[in-house]
């Protein structure tokens, strides 16, 4: 089942001589439960791609359909609510709310929707993340790896159609990086969660289903487990 379709996505920054074509007619689709990675050099356009898909940035042209709905045709408020319910974000710098504890941070998207969280679901996620003992802790009291696990919990709580992860291990050591990737893989397998992850770490793509590469704004699909192709 196709969960996302990107068609001819274009994005240009600057004007005249300073003009940079960050994305050049990028098109691809993602299936439900697919764990895909986008790799590329720094400045290649992979973050721009993620930002456009997450409706954080406006592309100059093209179409983004998530679960059949055209993201770019929505108004600001509608798009925000759609993002809150259907797209989970995991950032390199975690971006947790410092005034909320672990549990509150995880249920934050539900609270924004004025929904009462299902405690069993929250407990389940905390257990998967290994944060039961830390549920009342504030982000400032957690290690980097724990903070990123909270961010993953936050991305999972609404059971979104799509999770976008921007260099999720960029600020973590090797052990924590491995744990985060294991969690994402588990989420993909256990909850049939579609995940699109950006990384420039070749070691992380061994666990993913599909690898795409962005170079000079052009996306090329490197196919299924691309270990051998990349090497």
């Amino acid at each position: 089942m196709e969960i996302m379709e990107v068609q001819d996505l274009c994005k240009t920054y600057g004007k005249g001589e300073a003009k940079v074509e960050a994305l050049k007619y990028v098109s691809f689709t993602l299936q439900k439960g697919e764990f895909a990675a986008v790799v590329g050099e720094s400045g290649s356009g992979k973050s721009t791609l993620l930002n456009c898909i997450g409706a954080l940035d406006e592309p100059d042209g093209g179409k983004i359909l998530v679960d059949g709905q055209d993201l770019l045709a929505m108004g600001e408020e509608e798009r925000t609510i759609f993002r809150r319910r259907n797209i989970g974000f995991i950032f390199q710098s975690f971006h947790l709310i410092p005034e909320l504890n672990v549990e509150q941070n995880i249920i934050f998207p539900l609270l924004l929707d004025y929904k009462k969280p299902d405690l069993r679901q929250v407990d389940g996620i905390l257990e998967v993340l290994g944060l039961q003992e830390r549920r009342g802790h504030l982000p400032g009291q957690l290690s980097g790896g724990q903070q990123q696990r909270v961010a993953i919990g936050r991305a999972l709580i609404t059971r979104p159609k799509l999770i976008l992860a921007d260099e999720p291990t960029g600020n973590l050591d090797r052990k924590n990086s491995r744990e985060v990737i294991e969690l994402l893989t588990k989420a993909s397998r256990q909850y049939q969660q579609t995940i699109l992850m950006i990384t420039h770490n070749p070691n992380l793509i061994t666990s993913v289903d599909r690898v795409m590469q962005v170079a000079d704004g052009v996306l090329s699909d490197l196919g299924g487990n691309a270990n051998e192709k990349l090497s």
């Binding site: 925000t80 609510i81 993002r83 809150r84 319910r85 974000f89 950032f91 971006h95 934050f108």
Partner: peptide
């Protein structure tokens, strides 16, 4: 960050 997560 909150806007990215979905606050209106």
């Amino acid at each position: 960050a909150m806007r990215a997560i979905g606050i209106s």
